[in-house]
Design a protein around this nucleic acid. Sequence first.
DNA 1: AATCATGTCAACCGCATCGGA
DNA 2: TTCCGATGCGGTTGACATGAT
Length: 292
Amino acid sequence: MRKPEKKNGGGNGKNGDVKLRKGLWSPEEDEKLMRYMLSNGQGCWSDVARNAGLQRCGKSCRLRWINYLRPDLKRGAFSPQEEELIIHLHSLLGNRWSQIAARLPGRTDNEIKNFWNSTIKKRLRTSSSEPKEVMEAGGGLIFLQEQGINHSMPLMYMESLLSSSSSSTSSLQHIDGPNYQMVLDPKLEIPFMAQAAGNFEGIERDQLFVPLPQLESTINSFIEENAKAENTTSDSNISSDNVLFNNINSFSVTDNLNNYVGNPEETKTVGEWDLEELLKDVSNFPSFIDFQ
DNA sequence: AATCATGTCAACCGCATCGGA
DNA sequence: TTCCGATGCGGTTGACATGAT
């Protein structure tokens, strides 16, 4: 798309009707749009395109302004802090790039999306020998309500449990059994938390967080292992799995969620979760994945 | 130096939503 | 209530950049 002249030509059509340009913006077009926006402000985008003398559709103008020309845009590479925030927000919101961007001043949804799809996704993949699909969900947590006690565990770990307890491990979106029911992202792309936070709007919480009695012993050993791992954090030979488990304890979101899932009387829908509250303490976000 | 593979990112596309007629 | 245009969003594309061979 970097040679617009090749594809859509630009300029006037043969019947005299103005053909809309596509592709890369020229410096002249940028200047026109910038000047118009600065003196007139944002209005109807199709009017902007027309009044600024641009042979572009309103949509294209809007995108160019939002993603490139806006004066408040921050340029340059993402800082480690921004990166951490993006990972955290993605674990909560999933691929809701505009919502993530709204929490990163000066960054656009497109920028963050590109950053995620190129840099972060790649790191998540290469940071472990685990299968790709599992690692891409590495930021996710499974929350279990177990006889009034709420626990969390990494999705990775959860899947290994499922492979021994369910024959349908490849289709994880809705797993029903005599003693359990789970709803997971079908592609394992979006962390479970993010789905629970929005994609299942309308579903009652207790449909998402259900008792898993048959896993009790496994959960207990998970917790024990987790505690053990915490005591040996300084051990340089700590396995990647233990790193994973060890970080669970510091995830404050779990505590916040307990306020909801711990009370069966409460029947708010998922859409009513207070995400702002969940986002309060970014520093507690677990670094599941070792970025080296 | 040439070729190939992979990464980056600007921009497009299609769809969903919203508000006004 | 329906229609339609505007807007916003997320997924995808593909040209260009860069590194590897």
